[in-house]
Deep mutational scan, measured.
Amino acid sequence: ERVRARYDYEAQNEDELSFKKGDIITVLEKDDGWWKGRNGKEGLFPSNYVEELE
């Protein structure tokens, strides 16, 4: 599954994923509120910062 970033997100910890608004992220795992994904790097990000691609 792929999602698009709705906002910029700056990683707060080294296991998190940074991205810019409009970036496409491949979702690897979904957990409550935090998803694991890849966009060149791999890490956790808040699920409310992304939207599913149509």
Rank of each mutant, 00 (worst) to 15 (best):
1 E>P: 10
1 E>M: 14
1 E>H: 15
1 E>Q: 12
1 E>S: 10
1 E>V: 13
1 E>D: 10
1 E>N: 12
1 E>K: 14
2 R>T: 13
2 R>P: 06
2 R>D: 11
2 R>F: 14
2 R>E: 14
2 R>W: 13
2 R>L: 15
2 R>S: 10
2 R>N: 11
3 V>W: 15
3 V>M: 10
3 V>F: 13
3 V>R: 06
4 R>N: 06
4 R>S: 07
4 R>V: 15
4 R>T: 09
4 R>A: 08
4 R>M: 12
5 A>G: 06
5 A>Y: 03
5 A>N: 03
5 A>E: 05
6 R>D: 05
6 R>H: 05
6 R>Q: 07
6 R>M: 13
6 R>P: 05
6 R>F: 07
7 Y>A: 11
7 Y>S: 07
7 Y>V: 08
7 Y>G: 06
7 Y>P: 01
7 Y>F: 12
8 D>F: 01
9 Y>E: 01
9 Y>G: 01
9 Y>K: 03
9 Y>M: 03
9 Y>A: 01
9 Y>F: 06
10 E>T: 14
10 E>R: 10
10 E>V: 13
10 E>A: 09
10 E>H: 12
11 A>I: 03
11 A>N: 03
11 A>Y: 01
11 A>G: 10
11 A>C: 04
11 A>W: 01
12 Q>D: 06
12 Q>K: 14
12 Q>A: 10
12 Q>G: 08
12 Q>V: 09
12 Q>F: 07
13 N>C: 12
13 N>H: 11
14 E>F: 09
14 E>H: 10
15 D>C: 14
15 D>V: 09
15 D>A: 13
15 D>G: 15
16 E>K: 00
16 E>M: 05
16 E>W: 03
17 L>R: 01
17 L>F: 03
17 L>M: 09
17 L>K: 02
17 L>A: 02
18 S>C: 06
18 S>D: 06
18 S>E: 04
18 S>N: 07
18 S>A: 05
18 S>W: 03
19 F>W: 00
19 F>I: 06
19 F>M: 06
19 F>G: 02
19 F>Y: 00
19 F>A: 01
20 K>I: 07
20 K>E: 06
20 K>N: 08
21 K>P: 01
21 K>A: 13
21 K>G: 06
21 K>I: 09
21 K>C: 09
21 K>Y: 05
21 K>H: 06
22 G>N: 07
22 G>W: 05
22 G>R: 00
23 D>P: 03
23 D>F: 03
23 D>H: 04
23 D>A: 07
23 D>K: 02
24 I>G: 02
24 I>H: 04
24 I>S: 04
24 I>V: 09
25 I>P: 00
25 I>F: 09
25 I>E: 03
25 I>C: 05
25 I>A: 04
25 I>H: 00
26 T>W: 13
26 T>V: 12
26 T>S: 08
26 T>H: 10
26 T>D: 09
27 V>L: 09
27 V>I: 12
27 V>T: 01
28 L>E: 03
28 L>I: 13
28 L>C: 07
28 L>Y: 10
28 L>R: 02
29 E>S: 15
29 E>Q: 13
29 E>W: 15
29 E>F: 14
30 K>C: 06
30 K>S: 05
30 K>D: 03
30 K>F: 06
30 K>L: 05
31 D>C: 15
31 D>I: 15
32 D>A: 12
32 D>N: 15
32 D>E: 14
32 D>K: 13
32 D>R: 11
32 D>S: 13
32 D>M: 11
33 G>L: 13
33 G>V: 14
33 G>E: 12
33 G>S: 11
33 G>A: 11
34 W>E: 03
34 W>A: 04
34 W>S: 04
35 W>V: 04
35 W>A: 03
35 W>P: 01
35 W>R: 00
35 W>D: 02
36 K>V: 10
36 K>Q: 05
36 K>W: 13
36 K>Y: 14
36 K>C: 12
36 K>F: 15
37 G>Y: 00
37 G>D: 01
37 G>N: 03
38 R>L: 09
38 R>F: 15
38 R>S: 13
38 R>I: 13
38 R>P: 02
39 N>L: 15
39 N>Q: 07
39 N>E: 04
39 N>F: 15
40 G>H: 12
40 G>P: 04
40 G>W: 11
40 G>C: 10
40 G>S: 10
41 K>C: 08
41 K>I: 07
41 K>F: 09
41 K>E: 10
41 K>R: 13
42 E>S: 10
42 E>F: 09
42 E>G: 05
42 E>C: 10
42 E>L: 08
43 G>F: 00
43 G>D: 01
43 G>H: 00
44 L>D: 04
44 L>H: 11
44 L>E: 02
44 L>A: 07
44 L>N: 08
45 F>N: 00
45 F>S: 02
45 F>H: 00
47 S>P: 15
47 S>C: 13
47 S>V: 11
47 S>E: 08
47 S>A: 14
48 N>C: 15
48 N>Q: 14
48 N>E: 14
48 N>A: 14
48 N>V: 11
49 Y>L: 12
49 Y>P: 03
49 Y>F: 13
49 Y>H: 09
49 Y>T: 07
50 V>D: 00
50 V>R: 04
50 V>A: 07
50 V>E: 00
50 V>H: 04
50 V>W: 03
50 V>C: 05
50 V>L: 03
50 V>I: 08
50 V>F: 05
51 E>P: 02
51 E>A: 07
51 E>V: 09
51 E>I: 09
51 E>G: 07
51 E>N: 08
51 E>D: 08
51 E>K: 04
52 E>Q: 14
52 E>T: 13
52 E>I: 13
52 E>D: 13
52 E>N: 11
53 L>V: 11
53 L>T: 08
54 E>D: 13
54 E>P: 13
54 E>Y: 12
54 E>G: 13
54 E>S: 14
